[in-house]
């Protein structure tokens, strides 16, 4: 995963994300934004999962699949 790209993204609190390099824009929900924050803080994927479990009403299985899926999506969009 290449996290350098994350620093150039413009991310608003409302979930609007702009990538100045490609000109593409994205929308994410609150959980998605939280993962962005944690990625920027250089947390590992496992750390992200356990932080989300502490903060939200969810299970390890669910969060694990969802975080993997979310990061796969970021790769697909070339954001990481």
């Amino acid at each position: 995963m290449d996290r350098d790209k994350l620093s150039v993204l413009a991310i608003s609190d409302s979930g609007f994300i702009f990538d100045p390099v490609t000109g593409h824009s994205y929308t994410a929900n609150a959980t998605g934004l939280r993962i962005f924050e944690l990625l920027k803080e250089d947390k590992s994927e496992d750390e992200i999962k356990s932080i989300l479990m502490e903060e939200f009403e969810t299970t390890e299985d669910e969060v694990s699949v969802d975080v993997d899926d979310f990061i796969e999506n970021l790769k697909k969009y070339f954001l990481v």
Binding site: I17, H24, S25, Y26, T27, A28, N29, A30, T31, G32, R34, I35, L52, E54, E55, F56, E57, T58, E62, V63, D66, V67, F70, N73, L74, Y77, L79
Partner: peptide, 14 residues
Amino acid sequence: MKKEYIKPYIKKQT
């Protein structure tokens, strides 16, 4: 109390 969990998503604007 923990917050309600909503699955994370990101979607490209088209």
